[in-house]
Design a protein around this nucleic acid. Structure first.
Lengths: 195, 195, 195, 195
DNA sequence: CATGAATGAGATTTCATTCAT
DNA sequence: GATGAATGAAATCTCATTCAT
């Protein structure tokens, strides 16, 4: 008797997930080009061949990981696409930003390492730009609505602050006092807007 | 007639500089592991063999680049090692931080890509930690002297802000409004300390 | 209820035929070494595993195809093994030669591609030589009986003509004017023997 | 002192020639897909790596061999491109055809094995068609000028004869009585045109 | 009878490094 | 000082074959 379709499907899905998870961690820690397919297979406890049953190439494996990641991001970052942010939603956005990173710092570490390289992947570049635009647009409107004299500058300030904190967090998730930083930033803006 | 010793020496130094410069740019843009010695040699207009006359290995070439870079950093970041910062010196420090990055964004791009990777180089890790400590120490003392209630949090806030701005700048040096950002940060702290 | 033995047998035979037919076409068009078992299975709409239920190996599959083919050839080429050809039988032989090819040009294309290769299969070499000898023997006797001054040369001439026409036909079965060529050759010999 | 440019050039050319020659023989005897780069390198007494210094890929090596071969063919087959053949030139053409094959039967064996496969190379297909057209055009005009009632059929007859003889020759260059066959064909046409 | 997940040997290709000149 | 031909180890990828179900 052959395995049922369900059995096969679940085997496949588990293995694919296992491979992606293993590869993601290695890519993030050791770099994409410094991670051999051999190493991924060994760490995942499978053969090289099996990896190629599920992914056409090492590059396509990366793409697949990145795609998952992008899907996740959109869900979180632009839930209703209305582009309007109240002050409370703004604080919530800050909270959420850190929470999302904290949920999967490895993803973001990989994202960060890829986004810096000119040649690696166009996919990343595209999504990166889209994402930035999406978030930036919302932010811009928000700062304007808060009667900031220089909304663009305010946005750069805010995005620097957030990005810097995130970078430091993903570099050392265990030692960075994320909660504290989150509150510090929120307090900072509460103070600012109170005036 | 043969070249004089001086001529040889200057040829050596020029070539070494050329190789480092070329390698630095490639490493930063395409990644260390994705840059072949062949590519470096070709782009520098020399032979692979000559590169190995000056550098023991590809790894040692990277180390050499990183060493230069570290030397530069120390000169800039810890001029007198006294660890005491006046308010004016603090503003000057912000200015200087951006200026140093602007002087050689490629260096910093490389630094950023290396520092994220677990395995690449221990040297980098060491220096990275030392550097952080050095800067953090000075900053911590400064914020304490400015009577901040939470100097550590203040420091994290400040370093996030700076790091975020720098990351965004080195990702796109041509489009990031560096001057504006610099002034924005300085103004922010001037306002803060005035109160 | 379970399948009857008859049903199973007929399923077996159909599947075996399907696999052979599919493999034959792929081997002929893309080459034996360039055709993967995967590709055969996919094109036949079955699993790799099933293919291995019926054939021990890829090589044995090829052998099996070639064996069928050889059986066919013998039936056609040496019906009574008497080695004597009348003039009418000679014309009939020409007709038959083309007809046999036309019945299964793919078989002959495969045969042609295999027979050229030193290493592929000894089986083929053997049968190829036997076949040649068989046909050549009959031909030789025929040309002698027709009082040709140089029966061996005549035979080479004839076999070249036939082989060349066949090669051109199997290379492009759709555009080669087979009927015309057949008649041309027959007419040629009718004219020749009339004199 | 580095090698002079001449020295390097000659080393390069010799090695390229050696690799092509070795590969050609293996491709022709064992088939393109059945010949590993390893095998070529070993037989040529060099490393795999060196082969890739000179050829981008195994496929490009094949293309390169085929290109040389095509160049040779054009030189021989269409010397003045005028497309007019006298009767003497026709006999000379037959002679020349066999001579060219005899000069490098391995080339033609390879050509023959490639031309039969649908997928292998478009290059071959193109040149094959061009060559056929070129030769066929000249032949067609010739048979017309010789007042044949069916020049196209005559051409097919002639090309079958020639192709068949060539195929048999390249399959077994040592045992095929090429001179005899050549004369037989020439005599055949002399007789035919005399009438 | 039938499936396709899984393997591992081997194929193609890359690349840091050496070395003769 | 300078070249690039040459190597070999390791990387990516393919594929015939096995096997649990």
């Amino acid at each position: 008797m052959p395995r049922t379709l369900e059995q096969n499907k679940s085997i496949r899905e588990e293995k694919i997930e296992l491979i992606k998870e293993t590869a993601l961690n290695l890519f993030a820690d050791e770099g994409y080009h410094n991670t051999s397919v051999q190493k991924i297979a060994k760490q995942a406890g499978i053969s090289k061949g099996l990896l190629y049953n599920y992914f056409e190439s090492k590059e396509q494996l990366l793409e697949s990981i990145v795609n998952d990641f992008i899907t996740d991001m959109y869900v979180h970052f632009d839930p209703n696409h209305d582009g309007v942010l109240s002050e409370d939603e703004f604080y919530y956005f800050i909270e959420k930003s850190f929470d999302i990173i904290a949920e999967n710092p490895v993803h973001w570490k990989l994202y960060n390492s890829l986004v810096m390289q000119k040649t690696v992947l166009e996919i990343i570049q595209d999504i990166s730009i889209k994402l930035s635009k999406s978030v930036f647009g919302v932010m811009f409107n928000f700062f304007k609505s808060e009667r900031c004299t220089d909304p663009e500058g305010e946005m750069l300030f805010f995005s620097s602050l957030l990005k810097g904190a995130i970078i430091q967090y993903i570099a050392a998730p265990d030692s960075f006092p994320m909660e504290m930083m989150k509150n510090k930033i929120i307090d900072f803006y509460k103070n600012k807007f109170k005036i």
